[in-house]
């Protein structure tokens, strides 16, 4: 998985595959997330090709952190397998998902 952080826009773009091997980059991502200012943090998933259950678990951890810090976490434009995964797992009811 690759990450691109746009602090100004409070947006992080994820690309590639988000799996259990991404724990390190993910923790870095969470840190970056709270280094930005503003109410909401956007995870742009449009270039993310694949997510497994470990990836979903890490999104849940990010959601927990966001709640604790009173920030809103928005998942933007999931597609393909990622979108289908969000459907099957009803993650849409846990996250704000923007198309």
């Amino acid at each position: 998985m690759q990450l691109q952080v746009d602090r100004g826009a409070g947006q992080i773009s994820m690309s590639g595959e988000f799996t259990f091997t991404d724990h390190g980059p993910f923790k870095q991502m969470v840190a970056e997330l709270f280094a930005t200012t503003g109410r909401s943090v956007i995870l742009d998933l449009s270039k993310l090709d694949f997510i497994d259950s470990a990836g979903l678990g890490m999104l849940l951890l990010a959601r927990d952190e966001a709640k604790k810090n009173d920030r809103e976490l928005i998942l933007r434009r999931p597609s393909g397998q990622v979108k289908r995964m969000f459907g099957v797992t009803k993650f849409s009811t846990l996250f704000t998902i923007e198309d």
Binding site: S53, L60, G87, V88, T89, K90, T93, L94
Partner: peptide, 9 residues
């Protein structure tokens, strides 16, 4: 069939 995984909410 859809549903939240067990143990989240």
């Amino acid at each position: 069939g859809t549903g939240l995984p067990l143990g989240i909410e």
